[in-house]
Design a protein around this nucleic acid. Sequence first.
DNA 1: TTCCAGGGGTAGA
DNA 2: TCTACCCATGGA
Length: 324
Amino acid sequence: MSAPQSGGSPDLRRTTITTAAPSPFDFPGTAYSNGWAVLEPNCWDGDRLSLARTERLSRGRVVHLTITGAGSAGDRRVRIDVTHEGELRAEDKVAVRRSVRLMFRLDEDLGPFHALCRKAGRRWEAASLGLGRLLRSPTVFEDAVKTICTTNVQWGGTKAMVRGLVRHLGEPGPLSFADPSQADGTHPNSFPTPKAIAAADGRTLGAVRLGYRAPYIRELAERVAGGDLDLEEFRGLGGTTDEIRQALLEIRGVGPYAAATMLMLLGRYDHLAVDSVYRAFVAERYFAGRRPSDREAEGVYAEWGSWKYLGYWFDLWQGLDERV
DNA sequence: TTCCAGGGGTAGA
DNA sequence: TCTACCCATGGA
């Protein structure tokens, strides 16, 4: 299905494609699960329960995606409205589906985690009904850069840094040419490629205000763009978690917290990302306000085994819900 | 002004 | 392996 869109460029078209979701699957709970939904180029619409982003496909084509859950109960499909210029070819549709399936982890088996949630009881019960697929990016590179942007900074600072990268170094997509009145809040740029960040001049990168993280992110981009580091190979099943963790720790700017976050984004949940939020949360909930050592703090979720990260994550969010 | 955030790198013990 | 100090930036 492909039809010219009213307004904007006469060559601007919209194509709707779908992809199957596993069961159980909670679309809004997955899209708005870990903050990634509000880091550009992602844009979460809480009223329409849709996630939009401008996406640069592997062949270099830039399109705009609006992703929603199924329209009717029992229909476990994810709908993707693709706004594009000219014809959307079969290989482009394949690339779009692949990106969306990666973002929503539609091929990840969370059965063992959901079983643990049911066993753990009320506080984790909601997670067993289709949560746990924490949103990620279509590329490991984007996730790595965003993770570095979460270190030693408040969340508002993370959003500002990522916004700067997208606006200064991303590629304009089809909405750049659309009528601004049709804009859905999405910035029309894609997330920058490794090559774009590696090639950025000092003035442009300085404008992003990455602070001391700038040389880390530039080095990472240079290594990936130059073929020295293949982050995508971390998605493969080869290698133990410890081997991948070690490789992640060799990236400048990635320490224990960032490595654990990256492992989570890669679908490995056996390490906890111990940060100020984690320390404060477990201190309040499990140590009567006393600040435990990191070793003590990490022991809280030992019984979750290889699902520690998700066990903690839903404990944290349940704790926040209880305060509201 | 001072502190510190969804920490990490480095030097020195 | 552990500790102290430094690293840009911006919000509180």
